[in-house]
Nucleic acid binder design. Structure first.
Lengths: 146, 146
DNA sequence: TTACTAGAGGAAAATGATTATCTATTAGTA
DNA sequence: TACTAATAGATAATCATTTTCCTCTAGTAA
């Protein structure tokens, strides 16, 4: 799971450059979000961090995640029926979400990149970001419900 | 602003068919959401309803909106940095959102309807719904910031 | 290595949106 | 016109998230 080791180091460097510190708790958050690229909520990140640092407070996770968000190194995905999930890849990209087990995965769809530009042109908006999500039932959950 | 008068009447009929009642407060909520198709949050709906019925409680708006949501006649759009907005058109459709003035408008994009089916085929998911949103700055807000 | 200091952590209180509760009221029906 | 279950209104409760306040420590410089 060392896929995004390089970006992990970049984020750490940027953290320091912005006058922030690299604490063990922060390192643990970065590992699970930026390096392992899991799409977790704060409670789930908290569980991961507590495995290594049992004294950790939930507030610390919230603070860390907000620092990363403000630096633009992490993206927040808010939902109506659930708490927010965080993505270590801050560039907008489509997601596929199982409404049963709540798993979130990235998907590649080629034609989509052109869309924001077209909307900007047609509507006169200055497009900053976008959000493409598909909600459904993943293969595993389809099986277990039968 | 009588664009969606027919659907307003359909929703009222369905409300009654489901054993619900049509109260003046509910009628006011339906008018602003289903007939006028504004994309409002609960507080904004509350203000509209209070104009006609000053005694209305915020809790009533929440309850009404939840009844409509459970009946599938209204769609909820949750955001990370703001409270939920409601859309009187429950069929998934793309939105264009100004991050400055928070205005939400519907947009037409032809090619998008095929996408959920393609994702379903490629990933083995049973796609139930989707969400396409573009975030940017509307022409009016671009002017005022200069 | 040590000392310094601003940033960070921990615990708990505060906040704010949303939901639940509990009567009094009323829409729809007989 | 009366009946009754659904609804309104007021308020308390809930839950995710933020803030506060004080102690601790990462990073730096002597």
């Amino acid at each position: 799971m060392n896929e995004h080791q390089t970006r992990l180091e970049e984020v750490i460097a940027k953290l320091r450059a912005n006058g922030h510190r690299l604490t063990p708790q922060r390192m643990a958050v970065l590992k699970v979000l930026v390096r392992d690229r899991e799409h977790l909520n704060v409670e789930q990140i908290y569980e991961h961090v507590k495995a290594d640092f049992p004294m950790t407070s939930l507030a610390t996770i919230y603070k860390t995640v907000n620092v990363l968000k403000e630096m633009g190194e992490v993206m927040e995905l808010g939902f109506h029926d659930d708490c927010a999930r965080f993505d270590g890849n801050p560039c907008p990209h489509p997601h596929l979400i199982c409404i049963n087990c709540k798993k979130i995965m990235d998907i590649d769809i080629d034609d989509l990149d052109e869309l924001p530009r077209e909307v900007a042109r047609r509507k006169g908006y200055q497009i900053i970001s976008h959000r493409f999500e598909f909600y459904g039932i993943c293969p595993r959950c389809q099986e277990t419900s039968n």
